[in-house]
Amino acid sequence: MDVFLQVVVNGLLLGGLFAITSVGLTLIFGIVKVVNFAHGEFLMIGMYATFLISTKLGLHPYAAVAAVVPLLFVLGMLTQKLLIEPLMSARNHDIQIFATVGLSTALINLALLLFGADIATTPAYGLRTAIEIGPIRMLVGQIVMFGVATALVIGLHFFLQRTRSGRGIRAVAQNRAAAQLMGINVSRVYMITFGLGAACVGLAACLVAPLYPTSPGIGTYFVLTAFVVVVLGGLGSIGGAFLGAMIIGLIDSLSGFYIGSDMREVAVFGVFLLILILRPQGLFGGRLKLSHVS
């Protein structure tokens, strides 16, 4: 029983990790409607930035938030402005996917060029200390990550629901053309949304870096999981993404323990495919907007 409890707790903490790395993607995929394959590489960039700041300047990795979040925000805005926007008018929207695949390849190899294939380790500053609560053990850093993920999700939810900019973003997400007619600068909203999505990844990077070794290929693992989480939660649904992350964390942890670690991917992707086929709007998504009958 203790073991089962520990597996569940591990799953939820893993869910916290998936949540914080996926929330940004919900904004980008759900609102700008761009499949950003370079999402994982944004995380990788953030993690290397955190690594550099904390090793070269001797700062606590959490202090790197002040630099990494703005950095990623700008990077996200630039990606939208220079890469995605020129392709929005293209006849075939699918080629955006290739653009982000190209960006992802370029960034992974750039990191390989700059940092080499070896892993980079950010100092942990005690974040790897285990806390025991009864029979359960967890790390300080994991608890912080879970807490921040929850706060971020609630914060974003309120931002989208209650603020003017947030409402603008939702309007654009629902009907781009109508929003444009209402005088909303769609291009600007997309840039801000993409920037926000990337900034969330920056925040995630500062929390993830002290807990996991950084390497050029680290993003590829996260990006597929993030897509699974976002689709599971429902496009553009922030709360849905959080719940989706918890579910995937639990599936990952439980299948890893009870079925076998080599089959975890089959379990996670199997659930993903089932959801896509049976309930393409996601577990917590609103109305289906995938097909368009006249």
Partner: peptide, 15 residues
């Protein structure tokens, strides 16, 4: 026990 090398979590195996 086998696992993929790209994994980010080995807590299940450790457990």
């Amino acid at each position: 026990l086998a696992y993929p090398a790209s994994t980010v979590d080995m807590s299940s195996i450790v457990l």
